[in-house]
Amino acid sequence: MTRGAPTVGVVKFASCDGCQLSLLDLEDHLLEITGTFDIVEFAEATSRRSPGPYDVLLVEGSVSTEEQAAEILELRAQARTLVTIGACATAGGIQALRNWADHDEYRRAVYAHPEYVASLATSTPVSSHVRVDAELHGCPIDRGELLELLSALAVGRRPQIREDAVCLACKRRGVVCVTVARGIPCLGPVTNAGCGAICPAMDRGCYGCFGPRPEANMPSLTGSFLASGGTRADVARLFEGFTAYAEPFRTTVSDLRGRGPEEDADAQQ
C-alpha cells in the first residue's frame, strides 16, 4: 500500500463471490494492485473494515434484503466512484429469476427454514437503488476488464471497455457465426462484449451473461428466433439467464411469457 494512494473497497451483497474472486485471480498483478491502491475493505481477503470514504468502491451482488437496500444507500454516500461488478450487481443476477415466480413458493423450495430468510420479494440490481458510475458486466466478470478498469483509474484514461456486440469479438477472434453456420440461437448481437466470445468459440450460443447492450434491438432478434421455429417459451428461456432482469431483456421475457415480474414496493423504493 502506498501512502496517499486511492482507496479501494470491495463489498458484496447477494452473490456467489465469484466476481470478487476475480480480483484475487489477478495473481500476477496482486502486488502491483496493492502497490497502486490502498485496499481498505475486502471481505474476501482481509478482515479490515473501513467506514469509508472510498475513492473507488466495487460492489458485487444484487440487493435482496431490506438491510441491503439501506446499506447500499449508506455506501453510495461514502464512495466517490461506485462500480458494480458482475451480473448480480448490474442486472439482478440469476436470483432475479424469482422476480417472475411466486416468491414464497420459491423461498420454501430453496431454504429449509424459510421463516429465517428476511428477503425482499425481488432481487434487484444496485442501479435500481443508487446511481452507479461504471459497470463491469459478466458472470463472472472478465479478469482482463477488471484489470483494465483498475489500470485506467491508475493512469487517468477512459477505461477501454466498450459496449460492443459480442459479434464484434467473435469476428475479431475468427469465430464462425454459430447462428448463420449452424442455426444455433445466439444472444451475441444484443449482448455486451467483454467475455472474449467464449461461448460461440465453444460452439454454443451466447447466453447474454454480460447483459443487454444499450441499443439492443430485441424485436428484430426475437422475431428472427420465432421465425426460425422457436416457440415463445423457447425464446423466453434464451433470455432467462443471469441478466434476465436487465432491460430490455426483462420486457422481452415478460412479453414472451405473457406476464411481468413481481414488482415489489420494498425493492423499488
Partner: peptide, 24 residues
Amino acid sequence: LACTNCTMVCPTCFCSRDVQQSVL
C-alpha cells in the same frame, strides 16, 4: 441489430480504433 457482422466480414471495410493499453 447494429451487430457489426456485415462490416467485420466485408473484405473492404477498413475502419479501426486505437486502444490505449497499459497495466496499473
